[in-house]
């Protein structure tokens, strides 16, 4: 195991964040605060509670997921896309590193950033609402699993994308809609029956639902099923990225 290489990549990636601290950390915190003002206060004053959970608190898990998902993807995809774009990837590709080590470095750093972000959002949220976490262990598990698997997913996008447009394509066309329609700001039984059925095809729903259950013990679908979904997603990403590396996908002519 080339641990020095993992450390080198990880540190370089974390340095990159420090250079763009404002963008990486401040932006999501500010937007979270805005969500609370708009959804929590303005709309929340009309929706008293969802499943006995005050609306302001109800949206916290969804908000965290929203930020973690989008930031994991954008951090990890950019992290690998940028060296590909500038050509500096040659160094990583010619170094004595296995694909697992490359993953640990890049995905590890992206996941770390998402974790820091998630914690910041949680802290920001406590300024607006009273929070209780019913199952801290499960909450942490969902949190970590999501950070890791979506960073991995972002890494795949970064490998696949050969221009900036493609890099933005999946996050904006697929992820953002899925997250918004995944019950971030509502429970799906607030939807007409038909749309409830449609929502069940949205994988992000299971994530948010499981995560919310770990906070408030209320959920749209069973918690076990949520956990299985995220694990399945993680496994799929690992397999895909493994195949990509093995075939030198878009990295080795």
């Amino acid at each position: 195991m080339n641990t020095e290489a993992v450390k080198a990549i990880y540190r370089a990636e974390m340095r990159r964040t420090r250079n763009t601290l404002l963008q990486s950390i401040a932006t999501p915190v500010i937007s979270t605060a805005l969500y609370f003002v708009v959804f929590g206060s303005a709309i929340g004053s009309r929706i008293q509670s969802v499943n006995d959970v005050p609306y302001g608190a109800f949206i916290v898990p969804g908000l965290m997921m929203l930020s973690i998902l989008t930031q994991s993807i954008s951090n990890a995809s950019f992290g690998i896309f940028f060296p590909k774009f500038t050509g500096t990837i040659y160094e990583v590709m010619s170094a004595p590193i296995s694909f697992l080590e490359i993953l640990l470095g890049y995905v590890g750093a992206a996941a770390t950033k998402s974790m820091i972000l998630g914690v910041l959002i949680l802290i920001t949220a406590t300024f607006f609402v009273d929070l209780r976490i019913a199952h801290p262990f499960w909450m942490l598990s969902f949190f970590l699993l999501t950070c890791i698997s979506f960073s991995l997913f972002g890494f795949i996008i970064g490998l696949w994308a050969d221009n900036f447009e493609k890099l933005q394509l999946i996050p904006s066309l697929v992820i953002t809609p899925l997250v918004f329609l995944g019950g971030s700001f509502y429970s799906i039984d607030m939807l007409p029956e038909f749309w409830q059925k449609v929502s069940l095809f949205n994988p992000v729903l299971y994530l948010i639902s499981g995560f919310r259950w770990s906070f408030f013990e209320v959920s749209d679908v069973s918690m076990g099923f949520s956990l299985a979904m995220i694990l399945l997603f993680l496994l799929t990403c690992i397999v895909v990225v493994g195949v990509m590396f093995r075939t030198g996908y878009k990295l080795k002519p």
Binding site: A5, A8, T86, G87, T88, S94
Partner: peptide, 29 residues
């Protein structure tokens, strides 16, 4: 093996000292 590529490929937001240390790390040192 050490390689100096034909193209001037260097990352953008990095300091000289850091990028050289990064290379050393990649090679396990």
């Amino acid at each position: 093996i050490g390689l100096v590529p034909q193209e001037l490929t260097l990352g953008a937001f990095e300091k000289v000292g850091n990028t050289v240390l990064f290379s050393r790390g990649l090679y396990g040192k």
